[in-house]
């Protein structure tokens, strides 16, 4: 990923992924590594659109709140992000949705997170390996 975009994405990750209950915080390195792979094998147009959405999200913060996300407290930054999701304008709502899609996919698809949500992937993987269905 572009270095600047990488930095901007890293700033957004803790806002998107909140530790809650047993769920751990995100590992920004894991998320950005996933993003690199995901953007490389997807639609060529998706990469610039994703980059643009990240930049717009930061830009919207400056425009709407008069401050950058970095200068905001965590609570205020979260309020801002959540307000975008509830915007009356579809285009504004699309921005955080687009940015969040691969971030959520990366984090909640982790082998150590899925069992915390009741999906014991390692166990199931072993079980499925033992159990081949033949025609």
């Amino acid at each position: 990923m572009n270095v600047a975009v990488d930095r901007w994405v890293r700033a957004l990750i803790p806002l998107y992924i909140r530790p809650e209950g047993e769920l751990p915080p995100a590992d920004p390195g894991q998320v950005t590594a996933f993003l690199d792979e995901y953007l490389a094998c997807g639609l060529p147009e998706f990469r610039p659109i994703f980059y643009a959405a990240v930049i717009i999200l930061h830009g919207l913060c400056l425009m709407m709140r008069g401050r950058s996300l970095k200068r905001m407290g965590e609570g205020e930054a979260l309020d801002f992000l959540e307000s975008l999701y509830s915007s009356r304008l579809a285009l504004i709502r699309a921005v955080p949705l687009l940015v969040g899609m691969p971030i959520y996919m990366a984090h909640y698809g982790r082998d150590d997170i899925q069992p915390l949500l009741g999906f014991p992937v390692e166990e199931l993987r072993k079980e499925a390996e033992q159990r081949e269905v033949k025609r």
Binding site: L15, Y16, Y104, Y108
Partner: peptide, 16 residues
């Protein structure tokens, strides 16, 4: 969960 997560219309605390 990984697919459920990105299909939610929420972000931040509400998403968690």
């Amino acid at each position: 969960p990984g697919v459920f997560a990105f299909s939610l219309p929420w972000g931040g605390r509400r998403h968690a």
